[in-house]
Design a protein around this nucleic acid. Structure first.
Lengths: 159, 159
DNA sequence: GTAATTGCAAAGGATTTGCAACAGT
DNA sequence: ACTGTTGCAAATCCTTTGCAATTAC
């Protein structure tokens, strides 16, 4: 449970109070390896018998993101998702299945290095990366599903 | 003005009418190499003396995205941006300056290839990529600006 | 002529904000 | 005690949708 320690340290460093709500929300976020939506966090809190307002969840998540312990994602669903970075490389890709919504993580030091290199080549100082690949996951392929909207696309050779 | 031709062709192929509004909106989108927000598109239309409703803009953009001629982006500003892909590789990275908001594009076939490779390695069928690097652009660095929120981050070595 | 689009205004959904009551230091 | 947080509801912002009038084919 070292993450509680880290978050507390962050709050202390910022001169902010360590409240029960903040710790509870952090426990939920650090207790899942997936990508949580605010709605999912709310549900988990309800299940634990905690009654914490939505506004507090948003405010705590903002803090967790600022601390660098949690990453914010937008997979194009119309809302955000949150993922703790505890014990994993902050630089990793996401493979997002457009059919079933599954999100798989892959780490590639090679890819990370290449990205950094490309950015610095044009004088850019990189701080944060976002690598997402949308497509069809192995499971959906096995079930014979195809990329629905892909049929409408004008292929590049048209141009 | 070949893009008008392409968009028309797409509409015909779909059995949809080619309206004046659709062509005008397409002209605006294809007339800029940057990343336009809906608000910016509206402003440009107003400047041209065109009076087109916001709903029509959204509906036309949806169509342009489906056609594959335009890409939709979310740079975390709370709204979407649109970029035409006419004459450029659909696979390119974005370097986004968190201080001045500038967006620079870079193309890296090497990076694209590596990404494809990584995805396929785990049985994933890639269709669409998203590569964004957030940080400080060369211009802001020259002016001595720093990454404001970066100071709050817990470095990885804490974990 | 028929079917689809347009434009307006209203609805929708996620996130933020104001403010009085409350908790952490 | 003092400062900052919490929770509720209202507000906000972007985007979508319903529907009568209009336009493309």
């Amino acid at each position: 449970m070292s993450f509680v320690h880290l978050f507390r340290r962050f709050l202390r460093d910022q001169g902010l109070p360590v409240t029960q709500q903040r710790e509870t929300i952090a426990e939920v976020v650090f207790g899942t390896d997936g990508h949580l939506s605010v709605e999912e966090i709310e549900a988990e809190l309800r299940q634990r018998g905690e009654r914490i307002g939505k506004a507090t969840i948003y405010r705590t998540l903002e803090m967790l993101v600022k601390s660098g312990l949690v990453a914010e994602h937008d997979f194009g669903e119309g809302f955000k998702r949150y993922e703790h970075l505890f014990g994993q490389s902050p630089i990793h890709e996401h493979l997002i299945c457009t059919e079933c919504g599954a999100v798989e993580k892959i780490e590639s030091p090679e890819l990370a290095r290449l990205q950094e290199e490309q950015a610095r080549r044009v004088g850019f100082l990189p701080a944060r990366y976002r690598l997402e690949i949308y497509g069809l996951c192995a499971g959906c392929q096995a079930e014979g599903r195809t990329l629905e909207w892909e049929g409408l696309r004008c292929p590049v050779e048209m141009m």
